[in-house]
Design a protein around this nucleic acid. Structure first.
Lengths: 153, 153
DNA sequence: CCGGATCCGTTTCGATACTG
DNA sequence: CAGTATCGAAACGGATCCGG
């Protein structure tokens, strides 16, 4: 069995309390987890397949591993698609949605200092009206679709 | 100077623009970089030695590598200590300080869902008055010391 | 002493091929 | 379609050395 992808039960963090940055790093500190969260939160990619098709090209075993870790942490929930049983849908829990501010500030920071492919209007919306943008993300997550451009339209 | 980042030969990012989450992940997405930033930003640890002494026990080669990457990105600046020449001081640039919201939201999220060792008052201050907390971080960075507890005391 | 650089064994990651 | 198995590559981390 590939490195503990399957032993989710044993993934329990030590009860001893840590610096909060430390905890976030244990969960988010790798090259893929945040991208998976972005897919779920902002891109409306909620199936294994759609995440595999994302431009970064995550490997199937890595995606499976990250999804199962996130599920073990209670950040995502996996539920079988009602229409198509072999398909699974991954959705963010409230705990997962609460990571939106982290993602958003990362995006704003990146767009401030680097040339990014993000629609400038969207970054502006994040910067200027973060609360409204967050509400839009949340609302879209309820429908498990991609977020509307808050405000605009 | 402080901002022509990314010109380190080994670290050249592709000029093609990426999803902003992607950029943040390339820079921050590993097990140590965020902890180093925390030391610089929140713990007042600005020397190599003091970071080595942090509880997590980063290895000297890893710390040296992360600091040089952060320097190459224009996130930290290295300058020799005026009093003691063999000692070096690492300080955050403006670009680095602009990552404070990311760190802070990570801490708030972690403290919300896990048992952490953070002083609850500090987390509350972050949650309730993030702007003031940010100002305190910024001000303390100017002095290169640990941030005061904004407001309280 | 301090801030690293280098070497090297070990752990973890991740691309590809494969399977239920 | 949604994962596993395999195996090479990369990252990690301990020890050690070194210039200032």
């Amino acid at each position: 069995m590939c490195h503990d992808a399957g032993m989710k039960a044993t993934l329990t963090r030590q009860p001893r309390s840590l610096c909060p940055v430390n905890i976030a790093v244990e969960i988010l500190g790798d090259r893929w987890t945040l991208l998976v969260l972005r897919d779920l939160m902002l891109k409306g990619r909620v199936t294994f397949k759609s995440m595999i098709e994302a431009e970064e090209g995550i490997a199937t075993n890595i995606l499976a591993d990250r999804l199962s870790r996130l599920e073990a942490e209670g950040i995502v929930e996996k539920l079988p698609d009602e229409d198509d049983r072999r398909r699974a849908r991954y959705t963010l829990t409230t705990k997962g949605l609460d990571l939106a501010p982290v993602l958003i500030h990362m995006m704003v920071w990146s767009a401030t200092y680097y040339d990014t492919a993000a629609p400038p209007g969207e970054i502006d919306e994040m910067r200027r009206n973060r609360r409204r943008y967050l509400a839009a993300v949340r609302a879209s997550a309820e429908r498990s679709g991609p977020p509307e451009r808050a405000g605009k339209r």
